[in-house]
């Protein structure tokens, strides 16, 4: 039943994901300190731990007549699906789960975010949450198709849906070199699916925190952990898809994978401090009439190269 699954890897995976996610949060904290004109002491790296401790102490909240079941289910789904998605990412050469449909698997885990975020917004019986949840759906309608096509473009280049084989196919040339549009679209989607930085409108300040508006205590922590975990999982996936996986001189492949993942993650975090929020009502049209044709043309180019 679990032939393709590295069991001890599966046990370690959630914690490894948390660790990488915490690194992203630490980096974000450092950039925030710099933006505020403060010194960035070494202990800034502990800030995510501090935030987690804070949320563990803070009381949970219940709004009037929430749909508590759906609310909590939605929040928990974020992290669970992030672990599922990360399972097919080869850490160097070997993923926790080797599947011949790994690319589709990742995509399927990602679509569960549609449900997760909407439920988180709906469950609280609060206007801000409602607006945030629906904003995420609108955002998902915009980024999902370009992202699917970006995944397919990488699979096309390798002729396989197995992520390990996609990485292996880049032995001579990293896909990012001749699929730059697909890479950029994938990174945009990575930001959008983890409603992070420029695509954080579902949790926007203008709507009192959107999907996060009524969450406190551990309920909030679970959602935030899931969000960072998705950011890390998406960054980790971009490496075997476009950046040659664990390929690199001297160092072991897992270390190369980690280094590349952290580099992508750093870029994604940096973007948060560099760009304002992209409003969904404007992004919708841009995604459909600019991003979508662009990635289709990219796929066409790749398929012509492949044959």
């Amino acid at each position: 039943m679990t032939d393709g699954l590295a069991l001890w890897g599966a046990v370690v995976l959630p914690f490894g994901l948390l660790l990488v996610a915490t690194t992203a949060a630490s980096l974000s904290a450092a950039l925030g300190s710099a933006a505020a004109g403060r010194a960035v002491p070494v202990r800034t790296v502990l800030q995510p731990v501090q935030e987690a401790a804070r949320l563990l102490v803070v009381r949970r909240r219940r709004t009037q007549h929430p749909d508590a079941l759906l609310w909590r289910l939605g929040g928990g789904t974020l992290f669970v699906t992030a672990v599922l998605a990360a399972a097919v990412v080869p850490i160097g050469d070997a993923p926790v789960l080797r599947s011949e449909v790994g690319v589709v698997w990742f995509n399927a885990a990602e679509t569960l975010l549609w449900a997760a975020l909407w439920l988180t917004g709906w469950g609280g019986n609060s206007v801000a949450g409602l607006i945030g949840g629906y904003r995420f759906l609108a955002q998902a309608l915009a980024y999902e198709l370009p992202m699917m096509l970006a995944l397919i473009t990488a699979a096309l280049g390798a002729g396989s849906l197995d992520v390990v084989q996609v990485a292996a196919a880049q032995e001579d040339l990293w896909f990012v070199v001749w699929m730059p549009v697909a890479f950029v679209v994938f990174l945009v989607a990575a930001l959008a699916l983890s409603f992070w930085g420029p695509f954080s409108q579902p949790a926007g300040s203008d709507a009192a925190g959107g999907v996060l508006a009524e969450l406190s205590g551990v309920d909030r922590l679970v959602v935030l952990v899931g969000r960072y975990a998705w950011l890390a999982a998406a960054a980790g996936m971009s490496v075997p898809l476009f950046l040659g996986g664990g390929a690199g001189p001297l160092l072991p492949s897992w270390l190369w994978w980690l280094a590349k993942t952290l580099a992508v993650l750093a870029a994604l975090v940096w973007v948060r401090w560099r760009w304002p929020v992209v409003r969904v009502d404007r992004f919708e049209e841009i995604a459909w009439v600019v991003l979508l044709p662009a990635i289709v043309v990219q796929a066409l180019v790749v398929s012509l190269v492949v044959i």
Binding site: G4, L5, L7, A10, V80, L84, A87, L97
Partner: peptide, 10 residues
């Protein structure tokens, strides 16, 4: 194997 893996991971 995907099903067993999904259940274990979840």
């Amino acid at each position: 194997e995907e099903l067993g893996a999904a259940l274990v991971l979840m």
